[in-house]
Design a protein around this nucleic acid. Structure first.
Lengths: 212, 212, 212, 212
DNA sequence: AGCTAATCGAGACGGTACGTCGGGTCTTAAT
DNA sequence: ATTAAGACCCGACGTACCGTCTCGATTAGCT
């Protein structure tokens, strides 16, 4: 989200419409130009707004693009398809569909790259984008436990580690498939991923993990 | 690799020392400045080379950084630790160690981001960086089959798909863990990943794979 | 003069101080470096101004130097020394004094050389520099006619041709003496020139001019 | 003239054809591009010669162009038209014709401009170009004195000053007319100039010059 | 005929300046 | 206080030319 108005009340309030116009213009520019050729002056022009107005709300290109891309992930939902495998497949396909859109492809990896040297930016990404996705993993596990497909977690700490692992595996695999391998993360591929994942997790038992 | 001299022999040959100096300077600058603040003029200065010399060999920042980072992956080796699981853990740890170096962190995601709009760059990444890694997966499988840990592949096409999947999962997971989640891909985490992976793959059987 | 702001009033107005600083810096650089070693980046630095600010106002080195040198000729005045010969000597000495200043020596011939391939530049020189000088010839003739030293001109067209000739002779001779022959256009030399000029002109009578 | 081969004899001698080709290519480039856009690399290419070959003979652009332009003035001759006025008109018209050629217009003023900060270059110009012209003035005076049109000079020093003045006036006027005023130095104009000049000089008498 | 040494073409090299572009900041007048 | 407009400083861009250098290949004159 953009910076809120400082302090309080006096003077002309900021235009709410401008925020939406700027974010939309940012996505439009990402599609047409990609991250590296996107300029804030151009975004301001597309949004019908002065550069000043843009800089009053966002600190720079990174922050703006994070917000613009984050909105794309708002539509992610955990579908109820009856069984865990189908649920996973559904949400992974949604995730892959978002990553397939050019405004996400161009922008997402770029801000991640920038975040390797900017902890504040990393935190912003984590809150705006990653947390939104991780929540789905938690929901999915809860639902599967309610269905009896997964056993309840005895050790909360280990459970958290498992969630982190699953999340890195799923998100990482989809990102790698889509952006690095540049192959479609289609239904067949997602089915294979899901199978490996579920089979791999099913065997987890002890604190140090399962079978010898 | 940088552009080679055109065709023949006439004229002063290109300095081989310059190539090495430039790539080293690029990595040095990546460590100190990161991708976005790295400038080709600065790299040239560090390398003790004129800017024109740099542009004669590389088309731009993207290509240069790909080559500079690719050299980091030259040291990846498939260790022989006796069993498949240990082999995987060993190579994944090496991979994670490389991704933990600041010159890789800064540069790798950035060029991947750029490659989403530049097919030639993507191909360059694939050849210089990805292929080097994928070879290890193939070697590892062959060795495991020789040991009897994995069955021989009846269907070559399906086998190729399996390699691709494994590769996307492993590489993606390590990258995501290291750069997005920004948590260390340490021995414990790698052990968990390996277990999931092997368990998930062990169950693959039929042409459409998995368990009922 | 530099390019004026386009049309209207919106936005921050151009700094008037910058114009003066740039022209002064240009003259300073001409003195120190001469035309060929003068760089716009250096001028901008001396003026305490960004390069873009300079390029917003002038199209290039040629136009800038024309304006910078033109200001030198602002101080040219037609002195009233009582008789035509003395008036001419006075103004020619002033002209020679200006041409003797290094900022004029370096710049003037160079822009004239450039103007041989750039009609717009030639026009700019004519308006900014030449016209200022030619006005003095007209003034001087009018004053001499008022004094009775010269007869009134019956034929305006022929009169104009005479002015052009005088002007080319005087300006050309001083320039050639100063810059090509590289000898001082001192009082003695100017007295000789004036004598030749007046004597030569005094004999002009008929429409085709001269002495039998 | 270009630098001569060093020392003496051993080794392959310099190609004489190259000299001529380079000077011709220089004039060709002056016509097409003008002084400021002329590059030595381009001249070398036009002459079918390596840059090294060019630099071995000339120190730089200035020296090269002086030599290339100087050759244009080789064709200046003092015609014998029977009387002094006609002789002057003839030689001035020749001079004007040369100045009207684009290779001279572009190059001549430029090297003069450069020479204001480079005494060696000025000397080279004086020897290669100016002296050639001044010789004609001396010849013309001698011939006129032989004809009885001009009295013999009693005071050699004053005679030299007169020659210098005439030369600066004539050359300066033609240059100014052609390059600054950008009007043709045609027959009519030259006749006017000649009349002023002869009439002005005819009255010269005493050491401090003539009539009050 | 074989040496010898300076020449030749080609083109890479370290520099310097170019003119443009984008990032952020600022100063206007208007809302 | 905010807005649109646009000038401002800064720094990097990628290119062009400079003048030098390093190559391998000629090529004359002297032995």
């Amino acid at each position: 989200m953009p910076n809120r108005s400082p302090a309080g009340r006096a003077g002309r309030p900021r235009s709410a419409a401008a925020d939406a116009a700027i974010l939309a213009a940012t996505r439009e520019a990402l599609v047409e130009l990609g991250w590296s050729k996107l300029t804030l002056g151009d975004v301001a022009t597309r949004a019908g707004v002065a550069k000043t107005t843009l800089y009053r709300r966002w600190a720079g290109k990174n922050e703006l693009v994070v917000d613009a891309v984050a909105e794309l992930f708002d539509e992610l939902r955990l579908p109820d398809r009856g069984c865990l495998a189908a649920d996973i497949e559904g949400v992974v396909l949604q995730f892959a569909a978002i990553l397939d859109r050019p405004e996400a492809r161009s922008g997402l990896m770029a801000v991640v790259a920038e975040s390797t040297r900017d902890p504040a930016l990393r935190e912003r990404i984590r809150c705006s984008i990653v947390a939104r996705q991780k929540r789905l993993v938690l929901e999915g596990r809860a639902r599967a436990q309610a269905r009896g497909e997964l056993p309840p977690e005895p050790d909360p700490e280990q459970a958290a580690r498992a969630v982190d692992l699953i999340f890195d595996v799923v998100a990482g695999a989809v990102v790698h498939r889509t952006l690095v391998s540049a192959e479609p993360a289609d239904e067949e591929w997602v089915r294979g991923l899901t199978r490996v994942l579920l089979q791999g997790l099913a065997s987890r038992t002890g604190p140090d993990g399962g079978p010898a």
